[in-house]
Design a protein around this nucleic acid. Sequence first.
DNA 1: TCCCGTCTCGATCGTTGTTCCATAACTAGA
DNA 2: TCTAGTTATGGAACAACGATCGAGACGGGA
Lengths: 215, 215
Amino acid sequence: MWSRPQKAPRQTLTLERIVAEAVALLDEEGVGRLTMRRLAERLDTGSTTLYWHVKTKDDVLDLALDAVFGEVCLPGRRPDGAWDEPVRELIGGWRAALLRHPWSATILDRPLMGPNALERTEFLYKTLAAAGFPAPKTAAYSLSNYVMGSVIMQVTWQDHGDDDSGEFLRDRADRYPALAEHGLDHDWDATFDEGLAYLLTGMEQARKPDSGRPA
Amino acid sequence: MWSRPQKAPRQTLTLERIVAEAVALLDEEGVGRLTMRRLAERLDTGSTTLYWHVKTKDDVLDLALDAVFGEVCLPGRRPDGAWDEPVRELIGGWRAALLRHPWSATILDRPLMGPNALERTEFLYKTLAAAGFPAPKTAAYSLSNYVMGSVIMQVTWQDHGDDDSGEFLRDRADRYPALAEHGLDHDWDATFDEGLAYLLTGMEQARKPDSGRPA
DNA sequence: TCCCGTCTCGATCGTTGTTCCATAACTAGA
DNA sequence: TCTAGTTATGGAACAACGATCGAGACGGGA
């Protein structure tokens, strides 16, 4: 009666606000702390209200992940037909976006069917097909696999690895000599670039139909 | 008094039995259904008993994952010093083991510090170093990245993808023509082999110090 | 026989995703 | 201005989860 809810109810919570706040929450506290209640609290609303805009919590994660893909800007088309430069650009931006939101690497085990992810994949297919690859899908998969794997690896080690696993390996240098010798510290960017160079070199060799046998 | 617990209490639940049952449970019902209570039930014990042998649930997952790596058999050393054959063998076995237990691909975002995983990584380092790679760590990372990425990708699409995402893409053929053209069905093994061939080709080229500049 | 380290488990706590249902706010038509 | 109906909100509650606590049961050595 007299003690009515004084909070203005109609600020029309939108999907965009939910996703943006979810990304912010994930950035700040990690994937383990993303809770419907916490997310609702940050949006200054009830937790059950979210379920009007979203079916499950997985929907929130799907949307947040696709928002990350949306940060990757598509390279412009080259007039000279060079394929490796735009591919490098896309792949690099892809990696950078995922690393900017480390939580995203840990939820990559779900179908990437959001509009942003599809648009980037479409661009990759198109570019590779135009470059004359006999099987652009295969080439695209190799590249995606490599990006996803390297990002997951890097995030994993950056998150949980550094503190004690170094001496853990040093203590077992007799059992794992090669591992202990090369250590754990790592120039992630350089390693990524070099591996990508391996891949692109091999791909280029398989591309040209005039270079003898294609693989 | 007279209605005493008739269950024989001392069967000495071991860590090995817990891990084996966890792997079986994960194989049969997936990672989402792995619960301390369910696991205990299958072991015919109380859920809290598990916490005597294991500190947290994450420990169970770590142990189960390392058990999967234990299924990968290490290739024997070649006398002829060929590096790509044993590497192919290890990488292929690695992939096969992960695919045999699809849940393992979804929990790869944790440090692989179990003895089985370390032993395989050690072998990879050693083989690549012996083959004359200037940076065996970089080469090993490229390979691991590729395996992990491709397994995650395959498991993802095999698990959730197939049913309705095909027509989903076909309905949006105007927006994603290249994607729709190449479809979703996929020869995973062939794609994996080809991408691995790309990588190995590029690596071989970077290996030989006598082939001009090394990258 | 007693005792102590090893091992088991019922009761319970706090938190999670999600559903139900009552209800308030907005919109449009009369 | 009244009213019907859609849109949106949130309190209460549920089942299930990971984990802790403490009380015990066992078994071997003294």
